[in-house]
């Protein structure tokens, strides 16, 4: 059952991302990207990361995608924007295929080694994902968390300054 769900989600994610990069209209691309985000959220649920799956739907599908759609509809660009030179097409596609192939070959002959962390299955059963997530975020990663908030503030100021300039 778990495998069937994984393969369905993986199929949806790959096909929708392929559609995303091949559609002419940016609006269609954005909508296919929405489907990809939902499939990836499903994969997060399968990986016992329920909180991250919820954030994925809220932040990516809810906020970032709406931002993209706003900009697409605001600008209404005419060019569909594929590259004109066929030679560069071939180079781009072949380079990506080579890199993916390389990663897959490495995966085939590799094994994960490393010290296991503190999240034992019993503890996960007892505390739940969100509680463990909060514990890690607000103890070990407290300083990066604060820095992330400053980053978002600076991005907000920067976006306002750039968009307001005449």
């Amino acid at each position: 059952m778990e495998q069937v769900i994984f393969y369905i989600l993986a199929f949806v994610a790959i096909v929708s991302s392929l559609f995303m990069i091949t559609r002419n209209s940016p609006v269609h691309s954005a909508l296919w990207m929405l489907l990809t985000f939902f499939a990836v959220a499903g994969i997060f649920v399968q990986l016992d990361a329920e909180f991250v799956a919820a954030i994925q739907v809220l932040v990516y599908a809810g906020a970032i995608l709406v931002l993209y759609l706003f900009v697409v509809m605001l600008l209404n660009p005419k060019s569909h924007g594929f590259i004109k030179v066929p030679f560069r097409y071939v180079i781009g596609v072949v380079a990506s295929i080579i890199i993916v192939f390389q990663v897959l070959m490495t995966l085939k002959s590799s094994e994960v080694i490393g010290k296991l962390g503190w999240v034992t299955p019993q503890l996960a059963q007892e505390l739940g994902n969100v509680k463990m997530f909060g514990k890690e975020l607000f103890t070990t990663y407290l300083v990066p968390f604060e820095i992330a908030s400053i980053l978002l503030l600076i991005a907000m100021i920067g976006a306002i300054v750039l968009a307001k300039k005449d």
Binding site: V71, I91, G92
Partner: peptide, 25 residues
């Protein structure tokens, strides 16, 4: 493997598309 394939598709998108919004996506 799934993540490698999706990464490759995204890379192809950046290399092949010239529309800046789709490149960002």
């Amino acid at each position: 493997a799934l993540s490698a394939i999706i990464f490759g598709i995204g890379m192809t998108g950046v290399l092949v598309r010239r529309n800046l919004i789709v490149m960002f996506m």
